[in-house]
Write a protein that binds this DNA or RNA. Structure first.
Lengths: 145, 145
DNA sequence: CCATTTATATAAGTCGGTGATGTAATGGAG
DNA sequence: CTCCATTACATCACCGACTTATATAAATGG
C-alpha cells in the first residue's frame, strides 16, 4: 500500500479536526455558533425569512425566532414585513451587524495568518491552492435528489 | 492587483464556511460537538484527566465532569483512578466508544467522499494535496509565547 | 501532623433549546 | 365574496446543559 497518498477518508478526518480546531480557537463569548452563522449568511446573501434561516441551520423555527430576537435586541439585525407575503418577516443585517462581521473576519484572518506563517512553504502553498476547492466543497447542492 | 491569487484572509473565510458546513452536515443528534470531540481525542491520544479535557475544549471543569458522566452512562468511556495521583481520574474510551468513533468516521468519510466526487478533478486534487497541510494547521503549538 | 494546594464532584441558578399551540395572512373551491 | 386548509411566525411551558460557588478527598511542604 502507498502510505504517502492521502485518501478521502483521511481528508475527511482532517477536515473534522480543522472544524474542531476552529471551534476552540475562534470561540466567541457573546454569540454562539448558530447566531454567528446566521449573521454571516445574512451579510453574504442578503435578507432571509425566519423559516429559511431555521432550515439552513437545521434549527427549529422557535429557536431561530429566539436567535433573531437576540440579534435584533443587540442591534445587529432588523425585522421587516415581507412585501410579497404578509405572513413572513424578512430579517436583514444592520450596518452594525455588517461591521461586526467585518471585524470578526479581520480577527479571524489575522489568527489564521499567524498560524500559516509557522508552516513550511509547501504546506502554505498547498493551503492557498486549495482555497477554491474548499469553497466549492461548501456550496451545497443538496437540493439534488 | 492579481485577483486570481487567493490570499490568507480569503482562506480564513473559506475555512470558517467549511466548519459551518461540517457542523450542519455532520450534526449528531445524540451527542453535542464537545462530547464527540472529547471522545475522538480519547480514542486518538489515549486516557486523559478531566481537567486536561476541560482545558483542551475550553470548557469549565464541572461542565466536563458532566460530559464525561453522560459518556460513561452511555458506556462509551470509563473512569479509573490515576495510579500516580489519587486525586485524579483518568478517562479512557471503552471498546464501544472506539467502535462508535470508528463508525462515525466511516459515515463522515462517505459523506465527504460523495461531496468530493461531484467536484472537478483539479479541485479534488487540490484538496487531497492539502490534506497534510490542513493537519499541520491543527497541531496547535500555542504553548509558545 | 497540620496547612495549603490540587483534582474532582456536587449544588443552585441561568440560558438557550424544543414541541405544542395560538394568531394572522394567503390561496383555492364553491 | 365566503369558507377552509395551509403557511409563517410568535408565545408558552418545559427540559437539558452550562456556569459559578462550594464541598470532598488526596497530595505536598513545613
Amino acid at each position: 500500500m502507498e502510505t504517502d497518498a492521502p485518501d478521502v477518508a483521511e481528508l475527511a478526518g482532517v477536515l473534522e479536526q480543522v472544524a474542531s480546531w476552529l471551534r476552540r480557537t475562534l470561540r466567541n463569548e457573546e454569540w454562539n455558533t448558530v447566531a454567528l452563522s446566521v449573521l454571516d449568511e445574512l451579510v453574504r446573501e442578503g435578507p432571509r425569512r425566519v423559516t429559511e434561516l431555521a432550515a439552513l441551520e437545521r434549527a427549529s423555527q422557535p429557536g431561530m425566532t429566539g436567535i433573531v430576537g437576540r440579534l435584533q435586541a443587540a442591534g445587529l439585525v432588523g425585522r421587516a414585513p415581507d412585501p410579497t407575503d404578509g405572513r413572513a418577516t424578512l430579517v436583514a443585517p444592520t450596518n452594525a451587524g455588517r461591521r461586526y462581521i467585518r471585524e470578526r473576519h479581520a480577527q479571524r484572518a489575522v489568527m489564521v495568518a499567524d498560524r500559516i506563517t509557522t508552516l513550511p512553504a509547501d504546506d502554505r502553498r498547498a493551503l492557498l491552492d486549495a482555497t477554491r476547492a474548499l469553497a466549492a466543497l461548501t456550496h451545497t447542492t443538496e437540493g439534488a435528489a
